[in-house]
Write a protein that binds this DNA or RNA. Structure first.
Length: 874
RNA sequence: GCCCGGAUGGUGAAAUUGGUAAACACAGCGGACUUAAAAUCCGCCGGCGCAAGCCUUACGGGUUCAAGUCCCGUUCCGGGCACCA
C-alpha cells in the first residue's frame, strides 16, 4: 500500500472500478425495497457551482447510505437545458444556444463524474432534446382537449425599443436591461394551465406530505391562499358607448371583510377597468393617469411597495345596503387580473385604504370596535384591522361579531341577487407561453380559416431548429420561414406555426417520472415508473419551495387524471438545502442596474474582525458596494469547485461541503477549512498504513474479541467508537451530515490514541477502523473504497453491511450525573448505572458541593433527571 | 409591502429537542522535531477576576426547579413573490 495519500490516483481507480462493475446501474426489482433518491437537475450554465456540489453530495450520501442498508437505489441525473441564459450567451458570443448548451453539458458531466457520484448515467436526459420535449407537447394537447389548457390574454413587460417581451429579470428599475427604455405593460394572447382547478386538492394533499418540511408546506398553503369572502356588486346606470349600462350596471368586488361593508366610503378600480376607460374619455387628466399606470413593473413586490396613487372618475355607484352614492376611483394598486379588477374602500379598517383616504382626503368611518379602544384618525393602529371586534355604526348589524356579521350581510346581499359567499384563491392560473426561442415549441398552427389548430399527434414532436442565434431584438423563429410555414392540418391551406415556447418550469415538472422509465419512444412514462415512483427523497434548493414544487405536484395530478400514473404526489420526502452565499461586489452605473465584478478584479478592505469595510476596483479605484447573496453567474461571485477538486480531490471537496454546515442552513462560502478536511483524510490514510504495517500482524489465527473481558482502557476506547457510531446513525436519520462528519473525526482521534499492543487490541482496532471506513464511505467513497479493499476488509465496500453499535461494547457500570444547586452547575456525581432514584438523591444531598452552596438552608425540592443530572432547590 | 426562515467565541459550527453552552474543526499564539522551510506532533485559545467565583447564545420582557431551546415584542440578515432557474 502507498504510504502517501494520493487522491488523484485513488479516485481514478475507484471510479474505474465502479464503471467496470456497473455499480450504479439499476433495474426494477420487485424482490427488493427501492429507494429513489433525486436531486434537482442542474441548469447547464457552464460549470458546476458550490450549490451543485452541496446538492449532489447530499443526494450521494443518502444514496450510498441506503445502498449499504440493502435498498435498490436509483439516483439519476439530467439537464434542465432550456432557458434564458443560453440566449444571453448567444447574444454575447454569437453562438447558437444549442451549441452553447450541449458544450456546457459535456463539460459539467465530466465535473460530476470526477466527484464520484453514484449515478445511473444510462438514464441521463436533457430537456432540450426532441425525445424529451415531444412529451411536453403531447401532454399539452391532452390538456387542451380536457380544457385544462386554454388560450387567453396575459400581461407582459414590453420593451418599446427592442420591440420584445422582457423577463422580470431583464427589467431593472423599470427599464429594459439592454435598451434602458421605460418598460410598458402589454396584453398579448397566451396559453394558460388551469392550476386553479386543482387548488383545493393541492392544498388538501399537503397534509399527506409528512416527509416535507413544515415551512415548505406552510409557504405552499399561503401561496395557494384559500380565503372565504363575499363577492357582491355596487349597482349603477352608467351607460357605455352602446347606450347600455356597463357590465349590466354592476360593479363587482370581492372582500374577505364583508363585516366592514357599512364603512365603505369609495371604490377603486384598475386602470384597465371598463369604468376607468369610460370615464377617461372625457377627462384628459384621468386618461394621462391611466397611461402612466401602463408603465412600471408587473412584479408583485414592486406593486406592493410602490406609492399608492389614484384619481377620481367622477362616476358614482350605489351602496347595496345603505343606498348611498359612492365615488369610483382609479387606483394604481388595483390589478385587473385579480378577481374583478375592483375593490371596495373601507379606510377605517384596511391599512392600505386608510393611507389612500388620508392622502386624498376621503371620509373614514369606523364600523368595528374592539373593546373600548378609542379610534383616532391620526395614525393607523394595528387593531383597526382586527377581526376580533363587533360592528358599530352599522345599523341592524350593530353588535355582531365577524362571523355573524359576514353571514347576515351575505344573506341580505343574496336576497337582492347581487352577492354571495365565495371561496377565493390567491393562486392564479399558470401562464406557460414565452415569447422566446430557446424552449419547447407550443404545438399549435394558426390558420386564417380554421383558427388555432393543434398539431396532430403523428406530427409530433414539433422540432425546434437548433441553429438560430438570438440577437436580443425578439424571437428569431419569426425569421425562420422553414419553421413558420406549414400546411393547416384541418384544411391544408398555408398556415403559420406558433412561435411561442413553453415556460421552462414545464420541462422540470415531470422529468423525475421520465428517469424512472425505460425511455421508450412510444410512451411518456411506462410500467417501470410504477416500481420507482414516488420519489423517496427529493433534494434541492429552498428557492424552489413554491413554484417548481407546486407545478410538479400539479403536473402529477394531471397525469393521474389522464390515466398515465397512479400516484397523486411525486415527492414523499423533501430536503430543502440552504443556499450557498458569497459576497458580490458591484457599482451602480447611471441609468440603473448593477455592474458586478469578480473578486480577483478588486481590492477588499477588512477591519480587525475580518468584516468587509470597503472595496475598490483594482483597475481604476472605483468604489464598490457589496452584498451577501446567492452565488450566481450574473453576479460574478460563483466559486468554481474545479480548482478544489484538482488541488485536493473529490473526497476533500465532498467532506468539507458536508462538514461546513447542516444541509438546510445557508452556507456562507469561505475557502478556509478545506485544508482541515484534507488533513483529516491524510490522517485516515496514514492510520490505514499504520494498521497494515504494525497492527494487523498482531492478530492471531484464533479471534478472541467476542465475549472477551477487555482491559479498562481498551473497553473505554471500544465503547467510545460504538457510542460515536450510535450518534452518527442517529444523525444520518436526521440528515444532519455535518455531525456525521465530525463523528468520523472523533473516531479517528480515538483510534490514534488507542492501545495497539497485543492481539486483543489489534482486533478491537480492526473492528473500529472498519466502522470508521463504512461510516465515512458515503461522504468520501474513494478513500473508503481504497482502504477497505486495500486492507483486506472485503472486495467492495459498497457491498458491505452498514455497521450497528453493539450492546456489549456500549455497556458500562458507572455513570456520571451533573449536580446542580438552584439551577447552577456545582459538581458531578458518580453512581452505579442502575442506581435507584432514592440512592441518587441521598448521594446528591450528601455531596460537599450541595452542603457548601445550600449554606445551611434545607433542600426544598430535589429534581432527578435519569442519566443526566440532579438539581437541588433550596 | 406580503409569506417563510435565520442570528451562539476571531471563524464554520455542536448541544441526545427544556437538563454540563461552545463538541468537532478553521484561524491565531506558544513549544518539539529540522541547518532552514514545509509537513507532522504537543499545549493554549468567549469575557472579567490573583483567586473563590461572576457574566455570556442579536436586543427587551415573560414562563419554569432548569431556557440557546417555549411564549410576547423589537432589530438585523437570507429566500420567495408567479417571465432567472
Amino acid at each position: 500500500m502507498q504510504d502517501k495519500y494520493l487522491p488523484a490516483d485513488i479516485e481514478r481507480a475507484a471510479q474505474q472500478h465502479w464503471d467496470s462493475t456497473e455499480a450504479f446501474r439499476v433495474h426494477a426489482d420487485a424482490s427488493r425495497p427501492k429507494y429513489y433518491c433525486l436531486s434537482m437537475f442542474p441548469y447547464p450554465s457552464g460549470k458546476l457551482h458550490m450549490g451543485h456540489v452541496r446538492n449532489y453530495t447530499i443526494g450521494d450520501v443518502l444514496s450510498r447510505f441506503h445502498k449499504m442498508k440493502g435498498f435498490n437505489v436509483l439516483q439519476p441525473m439530467g439537464w434542465d437545458a432550456f432557458g434564458l441564459p443560453a440566449e444571453n450567451a448567444a447574444i454575447k458570443n454569437r453562438v447558437p444556444p444549442a451549441k452553447w448548451t450541449y458544450d456546457n453539458i459535456d463539460y459539467m458531466k465530466q465535473q460530476l463524474k470526477s466527484l464520484g457520484f453514484a449515478i445511473d448515467w444510462r438514464r441521463e436526459l436533457a430537456t432540450c432534446t426532441p425525445e424529451y420535449y415531444k412529451w411536453n407537447q403531447w401532454i399539452f394537447l391532452r390538456m387542451l382537449e380536457k380544457g385544462i389548457a386554454e388560450r387567453k390574454t396575459q400581461v407582459v413587460n414590453w420593451d418599446p425599443v427592442d420591440q420584445t417581451v422582457l423577463a422580470n429579470e431583464q427589467v431593472i428599475d423599470g427599464r429594459g436591461w439592454r435598451t434602458g427604455a421605460l418598460v410598458e405593460k402589454r396584453e398579448i394572447p397566451g396559453y394558460y394551465l388551469k392550476i386553479t382547478d386543482y387548488a383545493d386538492e393541492l392544498l388538501g394533499d399537503l397534509d399527506e406530505l409528512t416527509g416535507w418540511p413544515e415551512r415548505v408546506k406552510l409557504m405552499q398553503a399561503n401561496w395557494i391562499g384559500k380565503s372565504t369572502g363575499v363577492r357582491f356588486a355596487f349597482q349603477h346606470d352608467i351607460a357605455g358607448d352602446d347606450g347600455q349600462p356597463i357590465n349590466d350596471g354592476k360593479l363587482w368586488v370581492f372582500t374577505t371583510r364583508a363585516d366592514t361593508i357599512m364603512g365603505v366610503t369609495f371604490c377603486a378600480v384598475a386602470a384597465e377597468h371598463p369604468l376607468a376607460l369610460h370615464a377617461a374619455k372625457g377627462n384628459a387628466e384621468l386618461a394621462a393617469f391611466i397611461e402612466k399606470c401602463k408603465h412600471g413593473s408587473v412584479m408583485e413586490a414592486d406593486m406592493a411597495t410602490m406609492e399608492k396613487e389614484g384619481l377620481p372618475t367622477g362616476l358614482f355607484v350605489t351602496h347595496p345596503l345603505t343606498g348611498k352614492q359612492v365615488e369610483v376611483w382609479v387606483g394604481n394598486y388595483v390589478l385587473m387580473s385579480y378577481g374583478d379588477g375592483a375593490v371596495m374602500g373601507v379606510p377605517a379598517h384596511d391599512e392600505r385604504d386608510f393611507a389612500f383616504a388620508k392622502k386624498y382626503d376621503l371620509p373614514i368611518e369606523q364600523v368595528v370596535a374592539v373593546g373600548d379602544k378609542a379610534y383616532s384618525l391620526d395614525a393607523w393602529q394595528e387593531w383597526y384591522g382586527s377581526k376580533d371586534g363587533v360592528c358599530v355604526n352599522s345599523g341592524k348589524y350593530d353588535g355582531l361579531g365577524y362571523d355573524a356579521a359576514v353571514d347576515a350581510i351575505a344573506t341580505d346581499l343574496a336576497a337582492q341577487g347581487i352577492g354571495e359567499k365565495k371561496v377565493q384563491w390567491r393562486l392564479r392560473d399558470w401562464g406557460i407561453s414565452r415569447q422566446r426561442y430557446w424552449g419547447c415549441p407550443i404545438p399549435i398552427i394558426h390558420c386564417d380559416s380554421c383558427g388555432s389548430v393543434p398539431v396532430p399527434d403523428d406530427q409530433l414532436p414539433v422540432v425546434l431548429p437548433e441553429d438560430c442565434v438570438p440577437d436580443g431584438s425578439g424571437n428569431p423563429l419569426h425569421k425562420r420561414e422553414d419553421f413558420l410555414n406549414v400546411a393547416c392540418p384541418c384544411c391544408g391551406k398555408p398556415a403559420r406555426r406558433e412561435t411561442d415556447t413553453m415556460d421552462t418550469f414545464v420541462d422540470s415538472s415531470w422529468y423525475y417520472a421520465r428517469y424512472a422509465t425505460t425511455f421508450g419512444k412510444d410512451k411518456m412514462v411506462d410500467d417501470e415508473t410504477g416500481y420507482w415512483m414516488t420519489v423517496d427523497q427529493y433534494i434541492g434548493g429552498i428557492e424552489h419551495a413554491i413554484l417548481h414544487l407546486l407545478y410538479s405536484r400539479f403536473w402529477t395530478k394531471v397525469m393521474r387524471d389522464l390515466g398515465l400514473v397512479s400516484y397523486r404526489e411525486p415527492f414523499a420526502h423533501l430536503l430543502t438545502q440552504g443556499m450557498v452565499l458569497n459576497n458580490a461586489f458591484f457599482h451602480k452605473p447611471e441609468g440603473g442596474g448593477k455592474n458586478y465584478y469578480w473578486e480577483s478584479e478588486i481590492d477588499i478592505q477588512k477591519d480587525a474582525k475580518g468584516q468587509i469595510t470597503g472595496a475598490r476596483l483594482k483597475q481604476d479605484g472605483t468604489v464598490l458596494e457589496h452584498e451577501l447573496t446567492t452565488m450566481s453567474k450574473s453576479k460574478n461571485n460563483g466559486v468554481d469547485p474545479q480548482s478544489l477538486i484538482e488541488q485536493y480531490g473529490a473526497d476533500t471537496a465532498r467532506f468539507f461541503m458536508m462538514f461546513a454546515a447542516p444541509p438546510e442552513q445557508t452556507l456562507e462560502w469561505s475557502d478556509a477549512g478545506v485544508e482541515g478536511a484534507y488533513r483529516f483524510l491524510r490522517r485516515v490514510w496514514s492510520f490505514g498504513h499504520l494498521f497494515a504495517s504494525e497492527i494487523r500482524g498482531q492478530i492471531g489465527a484464533q479471534r478472541q474479541l467476542t465475549g472477551a473481558k477487555l482491559p479498562e482502557d481498551l473497553a473505554a476506547f471500544r465503547r467510545e467508537i460504538h457510542l460515536l457510531l450510535k450518534q452518527a446513525n442517529y444523525d444520518l436519520g436526521k440528515q444532519q451530515f455535518n455531525t456525521v462528519a465530525s463523528a468520523t473525526m472523533k473516531m479517528l482521534n480515538a483510534l490514534e490514541k488507542a492501545p495497539r499492543q497485543g492481539a486483543l487490541a489489534a482486533e478491537v482496532i480492526e473492528e473500529c477502523f472498519g466502522i470508521l471506513l463504512r461510516v465515512l464511505s458515503p461522504l468520501t467513497p474513494h478513500i473508503s473504497h481504497a482502504l477497505w479493499s486495500g486492507l483486506g476488509y472485503g472486495e467492495d465496500i459498497l457491498k458491505a453491511a452498514w455497521p450497528e453499535p453493539l450492546d456489549a461494547a456500549l455497556a458500562q457500570d458507572e455513570i456520571e450525573l451533573m449536580l446542580q444547586v438552584n439551577g447552577k452547575l456545582r459538581g458531578a456525581l458518580r453512581v452505579p448505572a442502575e442506581a435507584a432514584k432514592d440512592a441518587i438523591e441521598a448521594a446528591a444531598l450528601a455531596h460537599e458541593a450541595t452542603i457548601k452552596f445550600l449554606e445551611g438552608r434545607p433542600a426544598k425540592k430535589v429534581v432527578v433527571v435519569p442519566g443526566r443530572l440532579v438539581n437541588i432547590v433550596g
